[in-house]
Design a protein around this nucleic acid. Sequence first.
RNA 1: GUGGAUGUAGCUCAAUGGUAGAGCGCUGCACUGUGGAUGCAGUGGUUGAGGGUUCGAGCCCCUUCAUCCACCCCA
Length: 423
Amino acid sequence: MKDVIRSVKGTKDYYPEDMAVRTWLYQIMRQVSESFGYEEYEGPLLESIELYVAKSGEELVEKQSYVFEDRSGDRITLRPELTPTLARMVASRQNQLTFPLRWWSFGPFWRYERPQKGRSREFFQWNIDMIGDGSPQADAELAAIAATFLKETGLKPEQAKILVNDRRLMEAEIVQLGIDDGIRPKVYQIIDRRDKMKQEAWEEHAAEIGLSNQQIEQVQTLIQNKDLWKNSDNMQKFFEAVDAYSLDDYIEYAPHIIRGLDYYTGTVIEAWDTSGDFRAIFGGGRYDDLVSSVGGQPVTAAGFAVGNMVITLLLEKLGLLPDTSKSVAPIMVTIFDEATQLEALKLSTELRSAGLKVSTYPSPDKLGKQFKYANRVGARFAVVLGPDEIAQEQIAVKDLGSGDQNSVARAGAADHIRKLLEA
RNA sequence: GUGGAUGUAGCUCAAUGGUAGAGCGCUGCACUGUGGAUGCAGUGGUUGAGGGUUCGAGCCCCUUCAUCCACCCCA
Protein backbone atom coordinates (compact mmCIF):
# COMPACT_ATOMS: atom_id res chain seq x y z
CA MET A 1 0.00 0.00 0.00
CA LYS A 2 1.93 3.00 -1.22
CA ASP A 3 0.37 6.42 -1.31
CA VAL A 4 -3.31 5.64 -0.85
CA ILE A 5 -4.67 8.25 1.50
CA ARG A 6 -5.60 6.54 4.73
CA SER A 7 -8.97 6.54 6.38
CA VAL A 8 -9.25 8.51 9.61
CA LYS A 9 -8.07 6.48 12.60
CA GLY A 10 -10.86 4.51 14.20
CA THR A 11 -13.24 4.79 11.27
CA LYS A 12 -14.41 1.81 9.31
CA ASP A 13 -14.96 1.46 5.58
CA TYR A 14 -18.17 -0.41 4.96
CA TYR A 15 -17.53 -2.39 1.78
CA PRO A 16 -20.68 -3.88 0.26
CA GLU A 17 -20.38 -7.09 2.25
CA ASP A 18 -19.97 -5.08 5.49
CA MET A 19 -22.78 -2.74 4.56
CA ALA A 20 -25.04 -5.72 3.92
CA VAL A 21 -24.43 -6.87 7.50
CA ARG A 22 -25.08 -3.41 8.92
CA THR A 23 -28.27 -3.06 6.93
CA TRP A 24 -29.37 -6.50 8.04
CA LEU A 25 -28.91 -5.51 11.68
CA TYR A 26 -30.73 -2.25 11.04
CA GLN A 27 -33.64 -4.19 9.55
CA ILE A 28 -33.86 -6.40 12.61
CA MET A 29 -33.74 -3.37 14.88
CA ARG A 30 -36.46 -1.68 12.87
CA GLN A 31 -38.65 -4.73 12.78
CA VAL A 32 -38.30 -5.45 16.51
CA SER A 33 -38.86 -1.78 17.40
CA GLU A 34 -41.95 -1.49 15.25
CA SER A 35 -43.37 -4.78 16.44
CA PHE A 36 -43.48 -3.28 19.94
CA GLY A 37 -45.03 -0.06 18.67
CA TYR A 38 -41.96 2.19 18.75
CA GLU A 39 -41.54 5.13 16.34
CA GLU A 40 -38.31 6.01 14.59
CA TYR A 41 -36.72 9.42 15.19
CA GLU A 42 -33.37 11.05 14.65
CA GLY A 43 -31.47 13.95 16.16
CA PRO A 44 -28.64 16.06 14.78
CA LEU A 45 -25.22 14.49 14.48
CA LEU A 46 -23.79 17.83 15.59
CA GLU A 47 -24.60 19.17 19.05
CA SER A 48 -23.23 21.84 21.34
CA ILE A 49 -20.89 20.61 24.05
CA GLU A 50 -23.14 22.04 26.76
CA LEU A 51 -25.73 19.37 26.08
CA TYR A 52 -23.36 16.72 27.41
CA VAL A 53 -21.78 18.71 30.21
CA ALA A 54 -25.07 18.55 32.07
CA LYS A 55 -25.43 14.83 32.28
CA SER A 56 -22.87 12.66 30.54
CA GLY A 57 -19.91 11.45 32.52
CA GLU A 58 -16.91 13.72 32.83
CA GLU A 59 -14.70 11.26 30.97
CA LEU A 60 -17.08 11.15 28.04
CA VAL A 61 -17.21 14.92 27.69
CA GLU A 62 -13.65 15.91 28.55
CA LYS A 63 -11.66 13.12 26.99
CA GLN A 64 -13.79 11.17 24.55
CA SER A 65 -15.78 13.74 22.64
CA TYR A 66 -14.86 15.19 19.29
CA VAL A 67 -15.08 18.94 19.86
CA PHE A 68 -14.22 21.64 17.35
CA GLU A 69 -15.03 25.25 16.60
CA ASP A 70 -17.18 26.05 13.62
CA ARG A 71 -16.62 29.14 11.48
CA SER A 72 -18.49 31.37 13.89
CA GLY A 73 -16.47 30.11 16.85
CA ASP A 74 -19.22 27.96 18.38
CA ARG A 75 -18.03 24.81 20.10
CA ILE A 76 -19.53 21.87 18.25
CA THR A 77 -19.51 18.21 19.27
CA LEU A 78 -19.93 15.13 17.14
CA ARG A 79 -22.50 13.40 19.29
CA PRO A 80 -20.98 10.71 21.55
CA GLU A 81 -24.38 9.36 22.62
CA LEU A 82 -28.03 9.99 21.90
CA THR A 83 -29.72 10.12 25.27
CA PRO A 84 -29.08 13.83 25.97
CA THR A 85 -30.44 14.69 22.52
CA LEU A 86 -33.53 12.63 23.26
CA ALA A 87 -33.93 14.39 26.59
CA ARG A 88 -33.75 17.76 24.86
CA MET A 89 -36.20 16.79 22.15
CA VAL A 90 -38.66 15.60 24.78
CA ALA A 91 -38.16 18.65 26.98
CA SER A 92 -38.76 21.15 24.20
CA ARG A 93 -42.08 19.60 23.17
CA GLN A 94 -43.10 18.28 26.51
CA ASN A 95 -46.58 19.76 26.42
CA GLN A 96 -47.48 18.54 22.95
CA LEU A 97 -46.27 14.97 23.18
CA THR A 98 -48.45 12.06 24.20
CA PHE A 99 -46.84 9.98 26.91
CA PRO A 100 -45.59 7.38 27.26
CA LEU A 101 -43.40 7.92 24.21
CA ARG A 102 -41.94 4.90 22.53
CA TRP A 103 -39.08 6.00 20.28
CA TRP A 104 -36.12 4.35 18.58
CA SER A 105 -33.20 5.45 16.43
CA PHE A 106 -30.19 4.04 14.60
CA GLY A 107 -27.27 6.19 13.57
CA PRO A 108 -23.60 7.12 13.86
CA PHE A 109 -21.76 8.26 16.98
CA TRP A 110 -18.21 9.34 17.67
CA ARG A 111 -15.89 8.89 20.61
CA TYR A 112 -12.24 9.80 20.61
CA GLU A 113 -10.75 6.64 22.06
CA ARG A 114 -8.03 4.17 21.20
CA PRO A 115 -9.58 1.70 18.76
CA GLN A 116 -9.47 -1.98 19.62
CA LYS A 117 -11.55 -5.09 19.34
CA GLY A 118 -15.23 -4.18 19.30
CA ARG A 119 -14.55 -0.48 19.69
CA SER A 120 -13.90 2.22 17.11
CA ARG A 121 -14.04 6.00 17.07
CA GLU A 122 -16.98 6.07 14.71
CA PHE A 123 -19.69 3.51 15.33
CA PHE A 124 -23.40 2.93 14.93
CA GLN A 125 -25.88 2.50 17.69
CA TRP A 126 -29.48 1.47 18.09
CA ASN A 127 -31.21 3.47 20.82
CA ILE A 128 -34.66 2.58 22.07
CA ASP A 129 -36.45 4.32 24.91
CA MET A 130 -39.75 4.63 26.68
CA ILE A 131 -40.40 8.05 28.18
CA GLY A 132 -43.12 8.71 30.72
CA ASP A 133 -43.74 5.41 32.43
CA GLY A 134 -41.80 4.60 35.55
CA SER A 135 -43.16 1.13 36.21
CA PRO A 136 -41.17 -2.10 36.48
CA GLN A 137 -43.44 -3.39 33.74
CA ALA A 138 -42.05 -0.73 31.40
CA ASP A 139 -38.54 -1.91 32.28
CA ALA A 140 -39.65 -5.46 31.54
CA GLU A 141 -40.94 -4.39 28.12
CA LEU A 142 -37.54 -2.97 27.27
CA ALA A 143 -35.82 -6.13 28.47
CA ALA A 144 -38.25 -8.13 26.35
CA ILE A 145 -37.42 -5.97 23.32
CA ALA A 146 -33.74 -6.55 23.97
CA ALA A 147 -34.30 -10.29 24.25
CA THR A 148 -36.38 -10.33 21.08
CA PHE A 149 -33.56 -8.58 19.29
CA LEU A 150 -31.04 -11.21 20.40
CA LYS A 151 -33.43 -13.92 19.36
CA GLU A 152 -34.01 -12.37 15.92
CA THR A 153 -30.28 -12.20 15.22
CA GLY A 154 -30.18 -15.94 15.78
CA LEU A 155 -28.51 -15.90 19.18
CA LYS A 156 -29.66 -18.58 21.60
CA PRO A 157 -30.08 -18.05 25.35
CA GLU A 158 -27.00 -20.26 25.82
CA GLN A 159 -25.00 -17.83 23.72
CA ALA A 160 -26.09 -14.44 25.05
CA LYS A 161 -27.80 -13.31 28.20
CA ILE A 162 -29.38 -10.11 29.44
CA LEU A 163 -28.34 -9.39 33.01
CA VAL A 164 -30.55 -7.21 35.18
CA ASN A 165 -30.23 -5.43 38.47
CA ASP A 166 -31.75 -2.43 40.25
CA ARG A 167 -29.69 0.45 41.51
CA ARG A 168 -32.27 1.34 44.15
CA LEU A 169 -31.95 -2.16 45.55
CA MET A 170 -28.18 -1.95 45.56
CA GLU A 171 -28.30 1.46 47.17
CA ALA A 172 -30.50 0.16 49.99
CA GLU A 173 -28.23 -2.83 50.54
CA ILE A 174 -25.11 -0.68 50.55
CA VAL A 175 -26.65 1.75 53.03
CA GLN A 176 -27.32 -1.22 55.30
CA LEU A 177 -23.63 -2.05 55.25
CA GLY A 178 -22.93 1.35 56.76
CA ILE A 179 -21.04 2.55 53.72
CA ASP A 180 -20.71 6.31 53.53
CA ASP A 181 -22.97 8.08 51.03
CA GLY A 182 -20.04 10.05 49.64
CA ILE A 183 -18.24 7.03 48.25
CA ARG A 184 -21.30 5.30 46.84
CA PRO A 185 -20.52 6.15 43.17
CA LYS A 186 -17.06 4.69 43.67
CA VAL A 187 -18.53 1.59 45.23
CA TYR A 188 -20.72 1.23 42.14
CA GLN A 189 -17.61 1.50 40.02
CA ILE A 190 -15.73 -1.23 41.83
CA ILE A 191 -18.78 -3.47 41.73
CA ASP A 192 -18.97 -2.84 37.99
CA ARG A 193 -15.35 -3.91 37.70
CA ARG A 194 -15.39 -6.90 39.99
CA ASP A 195 -15.08 -9.63 37.37
CA LYS A 196 -12.50 -7.74 35.34
CA MET A 197 -9.97 -7.57 38.18
CA LYS A 198 -8.01 -10.14 40.08
CA GLN A 199 -9.12 -10.80 43.64
CA GLU A 200 -6.21 -9.09 45.45
CA ALA A 201 -6.09 -6.10 43.12
CA TRP A 202 -9.79 -5.61 43.57
CA GLU A 203 -9.61 -5.81 47.35
CA GLU A 204 -6.73 -3.37 47.37
CA HIS A 205 -8.70 -0.96 45.24
CA ALA A 206 -11.75 -1.36 47.46
CA ALA A 207 -9.67 -0.55 50.52
CA GLU A 208 -8.27 2.55 48.78
CA ILE A 209 -11.68 4.08 48.28
CA GLY A 210 -12.38 3.70 51.97
CA LEU A 211 -14.08 0.36 52.59
CA SER A 212 -13.21 -1.59 55.70
CA ASN A 213 -12.17 -5.21 55.39
CA GLN A 214 -15.52 -6.25 56.74
CA GLN A 215 -17.36 -4.08 54.21
CA ILE A 216 -15.28 -5.51 51.35
CA GLU A 217 -16.28 -8.96 52.49
CA GLN A 218 -19.93 -7.92 52.72
CA VAL A 219 -19.95 -6.29 49.29
CA GLN A 220 -18.54 -9.47 47.76
CA THR A 221 -21.17 -11.56 49.45
CA LEU A 222 -23.80 -9.12 48.28
CA ILE A 223 -22.83 -9.27 44.59
CA GLN A 224 -22.81 -13.04 44.63
CA ASN A 225 -26.30 -13.29 46.02
CA LYS A 226 -28.41 -14.44 43.10
CA ASP A 227 -31.56 -14.16 45.21
CA LEU A 228 -31.02 -10.55 46.14
CA TRP A 229 -33.80 -9.45 43.76
CA LYS A 230 -36.35 -10.96 46.14
CA ASN A 231 -35.62 -8.06 48.49
CA SER A 232 -36.97 -5.65 45.89
CA ASP A 233 -40.62 -5.16 45.14
CA ASN A 234 -39.59 -3.54 41.86
CA MET A 235 -37.48 -6.52 40.77
CA GLN A 236 -40.21 -8.96 41.74
CA LYS A 237 -42.72 -7.18 39.53
CA PHE A 238 -40.13 -6.89 36.78
CA PHE A 239 -39.52 -10.64 36.68
CA GLU A 240 -43.22 -11.42 36.92
CA ALA A 241 -43.77 -9.32 33.81
CA VAL A 242 -40.76 -10.81 32.02
CA ASP A 243 -42.27 -14.27 32.47
CA ALA A 244 -45.28 -13.22 30.43
CA TYR A 245 -43.15 -12.57 27.34
CA SER A 246 -41.83 -16.17 27.26
CA LEU A 247 -38.35 -14.77 26.81
CA ASP A 248 -37.17 -15.40 30.35
CA ASP A 249 -34.43 -17.80 29.14
CA TYR A 250 -32.56 -14.73 27.94
CA ILE A 251 -33.08 -12.62 31.04
CA GLU A 252 -31.34 -13.19 34.36
CA TYR A 253 -30.89 -11.42 37.66
CA ALA A 254 -27.24 -10.46 38.25
CA PRO A 255 -26.32 -8.68 41.49
CA HIS A 256 -22.98 -7.42 40.14
CA ILE A 257 -24.53 -5.48 37.23
CA ILE A 258 -24.64 -1.82 38.15
CA ARG A 259 -23.43 0.22 35.10
CA GLY A 260 -20.66 2.78 35.09
CA LEU A 261 -22.65 5.81 33.99
CA ASP A 262 -23.93 8.07 36.72
CA TYR A 263 -27.33 8.85 35.29
CA TYR A 264 -29.05 5.53 35.90
CA THR A 265 -31.58 5.69 38.69
CA GLY A 266 -33.29 2.29 38.82
CA THR A 267 -33.32 -0.89 36.79
CA VAL A 268 -30.11 -1.49 34.84
CA ILE A 269 -29.52 -4.07 32.10
CA GLU A 270 -26.49 -5.38 30.24
CA ALA A 271 -26.17 -8.07 27.62
CA TRP A 272 -23.14 -10.34 27.49
CA ASP A 273 -22.06 -13.24 25.34
CA THR A 274 -21.84 -16.27 27.58
CA SER A 275 -18.38 -17.25 26.34
CA GLY A 276 -16.95 -14.05 27.77
CA ASP A 277 -14.91 -13.34 24.62
CA PHE A 278 -16.24 -9.83 24.14
CA ARG A 279 -17.14 -6.73 26.05
CA ALA A 280 -20.82 -6.02 26.77
CA ILE A 281 -23.11 -6.28 23.75
CA PHE A 282 -25.33 -3.52 25.02
CA GLY A 283 -26.35 -1.68 28.15
CA GLY A 284 -29.09 0.52 29.46
CA GLY A 285 -31.57 1.11 32.19
CA ARG A 286 -33.80 3.62 33.89
CA TYR A 287 -32.77 7.29 33.99
CA ASP A 288 -35.62 9.24 35.54
CA ASP A 289 -33.71 12.52 36.03
CA LEU A 290 -32.44 13.05 32.53
CA VAL A 291 -35.20 15.17 30.99
CA SER A 292 -35.25 17.54 33.96
CA SER A 293 -31.47 17.88 33.71
CA VAL A 294 -31.81 19.62 30.34
CA GLY A 295 -34.51 21.94 31.63
CA GLY A 296 -37.71 19.93 31.16
CA GLN A 297 -40.32 18.90 33.68
CA PRO A 298 -39.32 15.72 35.52
CA VAL A 299 -40.40 12.66 33.56
CA THR A 300 -39.54 9.01 33.91
CA ALA A 301 -37.47 7.31 31.22
CA ALA A 302 -35.79 4.02 30.44
CA GLY A 303 -34.00 2.58 27.46
CA PHE A 304 -30.91 0.87 26.15
CA ALA A 305 -28.34 1.24 23.38
CA VAL A 306 -26.77 -1.41 21.18
CA GLY A 307 -23.53 -0.71 19.33
CA ASN A 308 -23.03 -2.44 16.00
CA MET A 309 -19.46 -3.61 16.61
CA VAL A 310 -19.62 -6.20 19.38
CA ILE A 311 -22.82 -7.83 18.19
CA THR A 312 -21.33 -8.15 14.71
CA LEU A 313 -18.13 -9.74 16.05
CA LEU A 314 -20.13 -12.15 18.16
CA LEU A 315 -22.47 -13.14 15.33
CA GLU A 316 -19.50 -13.58 13.05
CA LYS A 317 -17.75 -15.84 15.55
CA LEU A 318 -20.87 -17.96 15.89
CA GLY A 319 -21.46 -18.11 12.14
CA LEU A 320 -24.78 -16.31 12.42
CA LEU A 321 -24.14 -13.52 9.92
CA PRO A 322 -26.40 -13.58 6.87
CA ASP A 323 -25.25 -14.45 3.36
CA THR A 324 -24.13 -11.06 2.07
CA SER A 325 -24.07 -11.98 -1.63
CA LYS A 326 -27.83 -11.57 -1.89
CA SER A 327 -27.67 -7.92 -2.84
CA VAL A 328 -26.28 -8.38 -6.34
CA ALA A 329 -28.73 -8.71 -9.19
CA PRO A 330 -29.41 -12.41 -9.78
CA ILE A 331 -29.58 -11.89 -13.53
CA MET A 332 -26.85 -10.59 -15.79
CA VAL A 333 -27.45 -9.88 -19.45
CA THR A 334 -24.32 -10.34 -21.56
CA ILE A 335 -23.43 -8.16 -24.53
CA PHE A 336 -22.82 -10.35 -27.56
CA ASP A 337 -21.23 -7.72 -29.73
CA GLU A 338 -21.46 -4.10 -30.67
CA ALA A 339 -24.22 -4.67 -33.21
CA THR A 340 -26.54 -6.32 -30.66
CA GLN A 341 -25.65 -4.23 -27.63
CA LEU A 342 -28.67 -1.93 -27.85
CA GLU A 343 -30.95 -4.93 -28.17
CA ALA A 344 -29.43 -6.34 -24.99
CA LEU A 345 -30.10 -3.06 -23.22
CA LYS A 346 -33.72 -3.20 -24.39
CA LEU A 347 -34.01 -6.76 -23.10
CA SER A 348 -32.62 -5.71 -19.71
CA THR A 349 -35.18 -2.93 -19.56
CA GLU A 350 -37.99 -5.38 -20.40
CA LEU A 351 -36.89 -7.70 -17.62
CA ARG A 352 -36.65 -4.85 -15.12
CA SER A 353 -40.11 -3.65 -16.10
CA ALA A 354 -41.30 -7.10 -15.16
CA GLY A 355 -39.86 -6.57 -11.69
CA LEU A 356 -36.59 -8.46 -11.97
CA LYS A 357 -33.21 -7.27 -10.73
CA VAL A 358 -30.97 -7.20 -13.77
CA SER A 359 -27.45 -6.02 -14.44
CA THR A 360 -26.13 -5.62 -17.95
CA TYR A 361 -22.51 -6.16 -18.88
CA PRO A 362 -21.40 -2.64 -19.71
CA SER A 363 -19.65 -3.13 -23.07
CA PRO A 364 -19.00 -5.82 -25.66
CA ASP A 365 -16.32 -8.29 -24.61
CA LYS A 366 -15.49 -11.95 -24.96
CA LEU A 367 -18.44 -13.98 -23.78
CA GLY A 368 -16.12 -16.10 -21.66
CA LYS A 369 -15.01 -13.06 -19.75
CA GLN A 370 -18.59 -11.95 -19.23
CA PHE A 371 -19.63 -15.36 -17.91
CA LYS A 372 -16.65 -15.40 -15.61
CA TYR A 373 -17.58 -11.98 -14.32
CA ALA A 374 -21.23 -12.96 -13.82
CA ASN A 375 -20.15 -16.02 -11.89
CA ARG A 376 -17.72 -14.14 -9.68
CA VAL A 377 -20.03 -11.34 -8.68
CA GLY A 378 -22.62 -13.90 -7.66
CA ALA A 379 -25.26 -13.63 -10.38
CA ARG A 380 -27.39 -16.76 -10.64
CA PHE A 381 -28.31 -16.54 -14.32
CA ALA A 382 -26.55 -15.22 -17.39
CA VAL A 383 -28.64 -14.22 -20.40
CA VAL A 384 -27.31 -14.33 -23.94
CA LEU A 385 -28.88 -12.40 -26.78
CA GLY A 386 -26.86 -13.09 -29.94
CA PRO A 387 -27.76 -13.02 -33.65
CA ASP A 388 -29.32 -16.51 -33.51
CA GLU A 389 -31.57 -15.62 -30.59
CA ILE A 390 -32.57 -12.31 -32.10
CA ALA A 391 -33.48 -14.02 -35.38
CA GLN A 392 -35.72 -16.49 -33.55
CA GLU A 393 -37.05 -13.98 -31.01
CA GLN A 394 -35.57 -15.99 -28.21
CA ILE A 395 -33.09 -15.51 -25.43
CA ALA A 396 -30.69 -18.04 -23.93
CA VAL A 397 -30.72 -18.35 -20.14
CA LYS A 398 -27.86 -20.13 -18.43
CA ASP A 399 -28.02 -21.26 -14.83
CA LEU A 400 -24.56 -20.48 -13.48
CA GLY A 401 -25.00 -22.91 -10.63
CA SER A 402 -25.89 -26.02 -12.61
CA GLY A 403 -24.55 -25.02 -16.02
CA ASP A 404 -27.90 -25.77 -17.69
CA GLN A 405 -28.78 -23.51 -20.56
CA ASN A 406 -32.11 -23.17 -22.35
CA SER A 407 -33.51 -20.94 -25.04
CA VAL A 408 -36.93 -19.48 -24.39
CA ALA A 409 -39.24 -17.15 -26.25
CA ARG A 410 -38.30 -13.57 -25.50
CA ALA A 411 -41.92 -12.64 -24.90
CA GLY A 412 -42.21 -14.99 -21.94
CA ALA A 413 -38.64 -14.58 -20.73
CA ALA A 414 -39.44 -12.69 -17.53
CA ASP A 415 -41.94 -15.30 -16.36
CA HIS A 416 -39.54 -18.09 -17.23
CA ILE A 417 -36.72 -16.50 -15.23
CA ARG A 418 -39.01 -15.73 -12.34
CA LYS A 419 -39.90 -19.42 -12.13
CA LEU A 420 -36.23 -20.38 -12.22
CA LEU A 421 -35.51 -17.94 -9.40
CA GLU A 422 -38.26 -19.36 -7.26
CA ALA A 423 -37.25 -22.96 -7.83
C1' G B 1 -3.54 8.91 28.31
C1' U B 2 -0.51 3.94 29.91
C1' G B 3 1.62 -0.84 28.47
C1' G B 4 2.61 -4.90 24.83
C1' A B 5 2.87 -7.18 19.84
C1' U B 6 3.24 -6.76 14.60
C1' G B 7 4.49 -4.18 9.71
C1' U B 8 7.74 -8.31 3.24
C1' A B 9 3.56 -8.77 -3.86
C1' G B 10 -3.63 -7.24 -4.38
C1' C B 11 -4.43 -11.31 -0.10
C1' U B 12 -2.20 -15.19 3.40
C1' C B 13 2.69 -15.93 4.66
C1' A B 14 8.24 -17.71 3.92
C1' A B 15 13.42 -16.14 3.65
C1' U B 16 21.21 -18.97 9.92
C1' G B 17 23.46 -10.80 8.46
C1' G B 18 25.14 -12.86 2.07
C1' U B 19 21.16 -12.81 -5.43
C1' A B 20 13.69 -11.08 -1.91
C1' G B 21 10.36 -16.32 -2.56
C1' A B 22 5.78 -19.55 -2.39
C1' G B 23 0.54 -20.32 -2.46
C1' C B 24 -3.79 -17.89 -3.76
C1' G B 25 -5.36 -13.86 -6.90
C1' C B 26 -4.92 -11.09 -11.44
C1' U B 27 -3.79 -11.03 -17.07
C1' G B 28 -3.08 -13.94 -21.46
C1' C B 29 -3.10 -18.60 -24.19
C1' A B 30 -4.97 -23.86 -25.05
C1' C B 31 -10.76 -22.24 -25.90
C1' U B 32 -13.16 -16.47 -31.90
C1' G B 33 -21.08 -18.15 -29.09
C1' U B 34 -20.21 -19.74 -22.60
C1' G B 35 -17.96 -19.18 -16.32
C1' G B 36 -16.21 -22.99 -12.48
C1' A B 37 -11.84 -27.75 -13.71
C1' U B 38 -6.76 -28.54 -15.80
C1' G B 39 -2.09 -27.19 -18.13
C1' C B 40 1.32 -23.48 -19.82
C1' A B 41 3.05 -18.49 -19.85
C1' G B 42 2.99 -13.64 -17.88
C1' U B 43 2.01 -9.65 -14.12
C1' G B 44 3.66 -8.74 -9.78
C1' G B 45 8.15 -5.33 -4.28
C1' U B 46 11.79 1.65 -2.77
C1' U B 47 10.67 -5.40 2.64
C1' G B 48 5.64 1.02 6.27
C1' A B 49 9.03 5.61 6.40
C1' G B 50 13.75 7.89 8.00
C1' G B 51 18.48 7.35 10.13
C1' G B 52 22.52 4.23 12.30
C1' U B 53 25.93 -0.26 12.89
C1' U B 54 28.33 -3.45 9.08
C1' C B 55 32.42 -5.18 3.52
C1' G B 56 27.13 -6.36 3.21
C1' A B 57 20.57 -5.18 6.63
C1' G B 58 13.96 -7.79 5.18
C1' C B 59 16.81 -9.59 9.60
C1' C B 60 20.66 -5.92 14.55
C1' C B 61 20.09 -0.61 16.96
C1' C B 62 17.46 4.27 17.21
C1' U B 63 13.42 7.44 15.64
C1' U B 64 8.74 7.85 13.47
C1' C B 65 4.09 6.31 11.35
C1' A B 66 0.36 2.64 10.95
C1' U B 67 -2.35 -1.60 12.51
C1' C B 68 -3.76 -5.04 16.28
C1' C B 69 -4.25 -6.37 21.60
C1' A B 70 -4.75 -5.14 26.81
C1' C B 71 -5.59 -1.14 30.53
C1' C B 72 -8.69 3.39 31.19
C1' C B 73 -13.67 4.24 29.68
C1' C B 74 -17.68 2.47 27.23
C1' A B 75 -21.80 0.67 22.46
